[in-house]
Amino acid sequence: MGNVTMKEIARRANVSTATVSRVINNKGPISEITKSKVLAAIETLEYHPNLVARSLKNSTTHTISLVVSDISNAYFAKLSLAVEQVIHPKGYTLIVCSTGDSPEKEAGDLKNLLEKKVDGIILNTTGGNNEYISALSRKAPLVLCNRKIDNFDINCDFIDNDNYTASYKLTSNLIEQGHKKIGIVNGPMIVSSAQERFEGFKDAMNKISINITQDYEYYFDARYDEQSGYEVAKKVASLENKPTALVIMNGPMTIGALRYFRSQNIRIPEDISIVSATDIINQDLFYIELNAAIMDPWIIGKRAAEMLIERIEQDNKIPNREVRFYPEIRIGNSTKIIG
């Protein structure tokens, strides 16, 4: 039945429209008997409340959005499940957007979400819309996830792992094993995670008096995806003077590199050592056990959702907060000692 009104529900249940409104909005005292009568009438008449009209009246849509660079990345898939687990019991619906690391798509997605009046946004930014996002943060509660925006005017929370420490420790371990010709496969330097991981690598290499810049012989630019990891591995294999080890700065790029090396029968670690600054989900299914930083997306997603709910409930009027988790470094069998 279409276009059923609260008046018809009230008539069917033999109660006032005010009582129907209290049941629908779960507000005010009401007996269980009366509530049951109203719910039965709603079910019989197939009443569907006008959510848009209600949101305009109550200034809430009970929706939260998660905007990430690549939802096909297992890290973000698991993170989104954690967000959902936190917000669902509180009555919120999750809208997920995947930008493909395109600043243009990110800007369009964020604009659409504001127009839909979402109650809050968890954002893994592309790094290309900093001024717009800073302005947005004063209109809607915002939590930045894994990628930070350095803008004094932004009003948001930020949550991430300690990228610097992960990169520094993994690179230092390679140095301790005798490696000096160490390559770095890094993501776009426009985002904070790539910058932080680069700094960790650079400081570790400085211990053996190797000065690292982006002109470094074994610096490889890549995107944070599997295909770019595959392409870099192919390039590394073609070099006459090859690195003895690679520090790869995220899981999908590491998967891509492993896929190429295996296709060419290039052995890990016999022919080249590999470490990953973020772990691979379902690592136990792979043919090697990576030296990697263990970064749990479930913890990040859960805390990001909790922080966003706090912002929503406090009308976005709380000081900016930053949370960092220190990753555990797992030593597997993907590196070897060299003389």
Rank of each mutant, 00 (worst) to 15 (best):
V118T: 10
L113Q: 11
V52I: 15
I30L: 10
A40R: 13
S137I: 03
L144M: 13
E131F: 04
H62T: 06
H62R: 15
K117R: 15
P49K: 03
E84G: 05
K105I: 14
N124I: 08
L142A: 09
D70A: 01
L94S: 05
A41M: 02
S102T: 01
T63C: 11
T125R: 00
K90H: 13
K139L: 14
K117Q: 13
L66V: 03
E43A: 13
K105L: 10
A135W: 07
G100E: 07
L39M: 13
I87M: 02
K78N: 09
A140K: 11
L56H: 05
E46V: 11
S65P: 03
A107I: 07
A140I: 15
D101W: 02
V86T: 08
K116S: 15
Q85T: 12
D150K: 13
E46I: 12
D101C: 01
L66Y: 09
K35E: 10
A82W: 03
I30C: 03
E32Y: 08
P89E: 03
S134F: 06
H62G: 02
I71L: 09
S80F: 05
P89F: 08
D101P: 00
H88G: 04
S102Q: 03
E104A: 14
A107D: 14
K57W: 00
C145L: 14
I149Q: 07
Y47P: 06
G108A: 12
S137T: 07
I64E: 12
C97Q: 07
E131Y: 08
L110N: 12
N129H: 10
L39C: 09
S36E: 14
L110A: 12
I64N: 12
P103T: 01
V86L: 02
Y47E: 01
K139C: 15
N129C: 12
L51C: 04
V143F: 09
I133L: 07
A53M: 02
L81E: 14
S59D: 12
A140S: 14
F76I: 02
K78G: 02
S65Y: 07
K117V: 00
P103R: 00
I42F: 07
L81W: 04
V118G: 04
T61V: 09
V68M: 08
N50R: 04
L51T: 10
L94D: 05
E84Y: 04
S98F: 01
S59I: 07
T99G: 01
L136W: 05
D150E: 15
H48K: 15
P141F: 02
D119T: 09
T63I: 10
